[in-house]
Computed example of a mutant assay.
Amino acid sequence: MNSEKVIFSFFIVLALTLNFGFILGDIENPAHHPVYELFAVIVVNLIATILKFGDRTQMGAVLLSTSLVAVLQLIVAAVIWAVVVHGMNQPLSSAVMVSIVSLSAGAFLANIISVVLLLIETVIIRR
């Protein structure tokens, strides 16, 4: 068993599951989407992205691009959250929460693509 692949796969799957946990719930209700969970999603996605930098294959390039898309969307969601709550000193409205969760859902889709590609790569290597 290759420990590097295990760690790599662990962070890709963890990014997907944490992101799913964040977007689960009523899209308009800020109580269903805690800020610390968004922070955890961003950190794990950043770690997964850093781990993808070492792969020089075509599949590695696609995995890296999906990870960069996820990180970009999550950072934009966090910036929106920070600007509204700390910059404008306003509570999260349902419209702002919908934007944050929608961006996170886009990152979730990118994470799904990463996991599917990882599974395809694993099946190809096994043959």
Rank of each mutant, 00 (worst) to 15 (best):
V98C: 09
V69I: 15
Q58E: 14
L103P: 01
L117H: 00
I112R: 01
S104H: 02
M88V: 10
P34Y: 08
T17S: 11
F108R: 03
L38Y: 01
S3W: 15
I100K: 04
E4D: 15
L24G: 07
V13T: 09
K52I: 11
H33Y: 01
H32K: 07
L63M: 12
Q58F: 10
V71F: 01
G60C: 04
N111M: 04
V96P: 00
G21R: 00
V69P: 03
L103T: 00
V84F: 08
N45R: 13
L103G: 00
V35I: 14
M59D: 14
P34Q: 09
A78L: 04
A15H: 01
G60P: 02
I120K: 09
G25S: 04
S3H: 13
V79N: 09
G25I: 00
V76A: 10
L119T: 09
T122E: 12
N89M: 08
L14P: 00
S102Y: 05
I113F: 14
A82H: 11
E28V: 08
N45D: 11
N29Q: 07
H86T: 12
I100C: 00
R127I: 09
L74D: 02
I125L: 11
V69T: 07
V35G: 10
K52R: 14
N29A: 10
R127K: 12
T57W: 06
L18C: 08
F10G: 09
L72T: 06
E28R: 04
V123I: 13
L24C: 07
H86E: 15
E28S: 15
V98W: 08
V41N: 01
M59E: 15
I12A: 09
I47P: 03
F39Q: 14
L72S: 04
N89Q: 10
L68F: 07
L72F: 06
